[in-house]
Write a protein that binds this DNA or RNA. Sequence first.
DNA 1: GCTCCCCTTGACCATTTGATCAAGAACAAT
DNA 2: ATTGTTCTTGATCAAATGGTCAAGGGGAGC
Lengths: 207, 207
Amino acid sequence: MSQPQTKPVPNTRIQARNKETILAAALDVFSASGFRGATVDQIAARAEMSKPNLLYYFRRKEDIYVALLEHTLTDWLEPLRALDHAGDPLSELSRYIKVKMEMSDANPKASRLFANEILHGAPMIEKFLKGPLKQLVSEKATVIQSWIAEGKLAPVDPYHLIFAIWAITQHYADFAVQVDAVLGHRFDPRSAQNAVTEILLRGLRTA
Amino acid sequence: MSQPQTKPVPNTRIQARNKETILAAALDVFSASGFRGATVDQIAARAEMSKPNLLYYFRRKEDIYVALLEHTLTDWLEPLRALDHAGDPLSELSRYIKVKMEMSDANPKASRLFANEILHGAPMIEKFLKGPLKQLVSEKATVIQSWIAEGKLAPVDPYHLIFAIWAITQHYADFAVQVDAVLGHRFDPRSAQNAVTEILLRGLRTA
DNA sequence: GCTCCCCTTGACCATTTGATCAAGAACAAT
DNA sequence: ATTGTTCTTGATCAAATGGTCAAGGGGAGC
C-alpha cells in the first residue's frame, strides 16, 4: 500500500523546506487579511520568493489556504480529545481551559485564520465541522453529561458549556485588539487564564 | 448652531431612502465577505442600483463601510450602558446577557461585520475602542467591583467577566455555522440564552 | 564533463474591480 | 412651460491581482 506517485508527497528537502516557508508566510498574511484580502504577491514577498516560484509549490492561492487550514485543524481537536471521563471533572475542564488559553496566546494567528473562515461561512471546512468535530464534541458532551449524572458537576448543558469555553478562549486571540484597547495595555495571558478559569468553573462545583 | 452646509446631511427624501437601501445591501455583502471580499458591484446589485449611482451617494467603498460601522457602534454600547449599580447584580447581569443574546439572534450580520473588523486589527474603529468603549467599560467595571465589595457578587475580575459575556454572546452570531454543524441542527436561541445565562451567572452568586 | 530533472524567475496575460465622466432623465420651483 | 438642480447610468479607465510560460540556473548521478 505504498503511495502512488501520482501526487508526489513532499520528497525533496528543498520542497519540504520551501513548503514550510510558504505556509509560515501564508499564515501571517491570511490571518491578517483573510482569504480574499491576502494576495499571492504579499505571501511571496514574505516568503522571500518569487511569485511563480511560490505557485510552483502551490498551484493556486486556494491550495495554500486549504493546506494551512488542514494543518491547523488537527491541533485543534487534540486538547478536547484529552478530556478524560476517569479524571476529576473540574481538573479536566480546568486543564482544557488552560491548554486552550495557552494555544490562543502561543498561536493567535492560527486562531484568527480559523475564526475568519468560520465567520465567512466555513466554505472550506464544512466537512470537518460536520464530521470529526461534531463526532468528537458529541463524545465529550456525553462525558460531561455523565459527570453531571454522577453528581460530580452542576447541571449545565454540555454543548453550550463547550461553546462557552471555545468562545472565551478564542476571544483573547481573535479580539486581542479590542481587549488591549479596553484594558489600555497589552493584556497578561497568565491573569487572563486565571480569570477565565475562575469565571467558567466557579459555577460548576457541586455544593 | 445650525449645521454648516459644507457637508450636506441627507436632506432629500430620495437621498435618505437610497442611503438606507445602500447600507442595508452593504451590510449583507460586507458581513458575508468582509471589506476586501465585498465588491461595489455586489452591493450595487443587491441594492438594485447601478454602480455609478451607488457611488454618487458614497464616493468610495470605504465610506459605505465606515458609515455602516458607525451606524452599528451606537447600538453596541447601549445595553452595557444600562447596567445599573442600584439594581440587583444578578438581575442586571442577567438582563445584559439576555439583551446581547437577543441582539446576536436578531442581527447576526452586524455582529459579524464588527467581528471581522476587529479580527483584522480594527483599522477603522481604533478610536472607538480606545475612546468611548474603553471609557464605558471602565465605568461598568467599577460598578461590578463595587457589587463585589458590597458582598453582592462573587469576586471575579470585572473586565474579564465583561469579556466573557461579550465572547459567548457574540459566539452564537459569529460562529453560528460551527454551532449548527456541531449540534447537527439550527440552534434554538431561547435554549442557548438559558444555557449561557446559567453558565455565566451560576458562579457569581454569593453563598 | 554530461545529462537529466528539479528549481527559479522576468515578462506577460486576462480578469476583476474601484472609480470617473459625460450625457441624459426625473424632479422641484417659479 | 422653463429652468436649474438632483438623480441615474452606459461606457470607460487604470490599477491590482491570480495565474501562465518560456527560458535559464543549479544540483545529483553517471
